[in-house]
Amino acid sequence: MITYTFEKAGLTKEGIERLFHSVEWESASYPEDLHQAIMNSHSVATAWDGDKLVGLANALSDDSMAVYFHYVLTDPAYQGSGIGKTIMNMMLDRYEEMHTKVLVSYPKAVGFYESLGFEPEQTSTPMYVFSR
């Protein structure tokens, strides 16, 4: 049975690193920084199979006008079971009053986010500066 929470207490560097490695995200290469980033997030919704972290979404927010969902991921062994949808709905409920909700999607996930009400913004382009 999958359980869901906003509690950060059970999040470990190793559990977060394992989850990020499972989806082959580069962030897993920086386990200390990644753990600190998740722990410093405005909020984190997680999915657990027993004591195994199998899904996560984090939010960065000004607590007034805008929220940015930076990481949304589900262990591939659990994808398609509704975990991603559940944790994103948890986040959307938590930030319902925010004027602007933002995320950047990989092309293959656009349909998933559209099913949650997100729409591409035609008048803006995501911009990045990467370090390291």
Rank of each mutant, 00 (worst) to 15 (best):
K85P: 13
T3N: 10
M1D: 13
Q79R: 05
G84M: 07
V72E: 02
D33E: 06
S22C: 07
R18I: 08
Y113E: 12
A37M: 03
T46Q: 03
T86G: 12
D49I: 03
M127A: 12
Q79H: 10
E24R: 14
E97Q: 15
A59S: 03
E24W: 05
Q122F: 15
V102G: 07
A109D: 08
Q79Y: 03
Y128I: 07
I16N: 02
E114P: 08
Y128C: 15
V67K: 02
L19Q: 03
L60A: 04
Q122H: 13
V72Q: 07
Q122Y: 10
G82F: 10
T74Q: 01
L11Y: 08
Q36P: 01
N40L: 05
E7V: 04
E97I: 10
Y128A: 06
N58Y: 00
P31K: 00
G10S: 11
D63G: 09
A45C: 03
H99R: 15
T46K: 04
E7C: 11
S27R: 06
A28N: 02
R94H: 14
F6E: 09
M39F: 06
V44P: 00
M90W: 08
E14G: 04
V104F: 11
Y128P: 02
P31M: 01
V44S: 02
E114Q: 14
S27E: 04
F20D: 02
L53M: 04
G80Q: 13
V44D: 00
D63A: 12
L19T: 00
Y68E: 07
S22E: 06
S43I: 01
K52P: 04
M127N: 07
S27A: 10
A77S: 10
D63K: 11
I83T: 09
A109I: 13
E7K: 04
D49Y: 05
P120T: 09
M90C: 13
M39I: 06
E97A: 15
V129H: 09
S131L: 15
K8F: 05
Y71D: 07
S22F: 01
T86L: 14
M65A: 04
A77Q: 14
D33H: 11
F69P: 00
N89E: 15
S43V: 03
D75L: 09
R94Q: 13
D93C: 15
E121I: 13
N89A: 12
H70R: 11
M91V: 07
H21R: 13
Y95L: 12
